[in-house]
């Protein structure tokens, strides 16, 4: 099992650290899956995570100048690592002016991701900072836990309003309630609602548009013959939603959400070379 990668370009480095920062805001620990072409940050929707799931996918070619990996076996050319994204984010934080950043999988006293940062210095030779981030190597028999989640059989799929606006609204609502009802219909309307004994607040968003899902996909037929005006709703933990919105450091080109009535809300944030899916289960 081998892995080494190198980033030289500053823009790529900043972009990569923004992605890592976003992940660090969403998950304390997550799985880093490495394949020849892609990197994945995965949080499987176990009960321990409060049922929240995350799937973030990035093409290595758009970030790394060098990327070599060798999985456990040629037919399973993948590496699964358990990492604390906060560590990775911290290691990259002080690398903003780096000449080069190398990431390497090492095994000295324990398996580590070694992030070696080459920084400019006042003298002729450059400063080298290395961060050894302890990781857990996930054995192959557990890999099945980290499969790409399917797009759920949603009732309504809708584009999200500008995330910043949504974030402000949700942050205000968070002071009033622990949960928020997110509801939407197929005519581009979405509402965020909180209802407590004292107060009810609803924020209405209009003309958001509904993404066209290929109707060939059979699983989406519950959305097919649906009344355009009727709302599908799910009540979710407001902190989880707020976390997702506040942690966004990568400005997505497209943001949408799929609502499975009373079951789950599936967020998809798309960027040119990064995609982030986030699942928040509905509260009972």
């Amino acid at each position: 099992m081998r892995f080494r990668a190198k980033i030289v370009d500053l823009a790529c480095l900043n972009h990569f650290s923004r992605v890592v920062n976003t992940i660090a805001k969403l998950a304390k620990a997550c799985t880093l899956r490495l394949t020849a072409g892609k990197l994945y940050f995965i949080l499987s929707d176990k009960v321990a995570n409060g049922g929240v799931g995350m799937w973030c996918e990035l093409c290595q070619g758009n970030f790394f100048d060098e990327f070599q990996m060798e999985g456990v076996a040629p037919e399973h050319n993948e590496i699964y690592l358990e990492v604390v994204p906060e560590n990775l984010s911290r290691a990259l934080k002080t690398a903003q002016s780096a000449k080069a950043v190398k990431i390497k999988l090492t095994n000295k006293h324990c398996p580590c991701l070694r992030v070696a940062v080459e920084l400019p210095s006042l003298s002729s030779s450059s400063r080298i900072v290395t961060h050894d981030i302890p990781v857990g190597v996930i054995p192959r028999r557990l890999w099945n836990d980290f499969r790409e989640p399917n797009v759920p059989d949603f009732d309504v799929s809708i584009y999200l309003p500008v995330l910043k606006t949504m974030k402000t609204v949700v942050e205000r609502m968070k002071n009033l309630s622990n949960s928020v009802v997110i509801e939407a219909n197929l005519s581009g309307e979405m509402n965020l609602k909180i209802e407590t004994d004292l107060v009810s607040v609803t924020t209405h968003f209009k003309d958001l548009g509904n993404p066209p899902w290929a109707s060939v996909d059979e699983c989406q037929d519950s959305a097919q013959d649906r009344d355009l005006e009727s709302m599908a709703e799910a009540r979710i933990d407001i902190r989880k939603l707020q976390q997702l919105l506040a942690g966004q450091q990568v400005n997505p080109t497209k943001a949408l959400c799929n609502i499975v009535s009373k079951r789950i809300v599936h967020f998809i944030l798309l960027h040119e070379d990064v995609s982030l899916q986030y699942f928040i289960p509905a509260l009972a």
């Binding site: 604390v84 560590n87 911290r90 290691a91 006293h109 324990c110 580590c112 210095s121 006042l122 003298s123 002729s124 030779s125 400063r127 080298i128 900072v129 290395t130 961060h131 050894d132 981030i133 302890p134």
Partner: peptide, 19 residues
């Protein structure tokens, strides 16, 4: 100690003599 070493990120920085 050893057990902590497996959990903590170890950061090391090298400075050249001419700095």
């Amino acid at each position: 100690d050893e057990t902590e070493l497996k959990k903590t990120m170890v950061t090391e920085l090298w400075l050249a003599e001419d700095e």
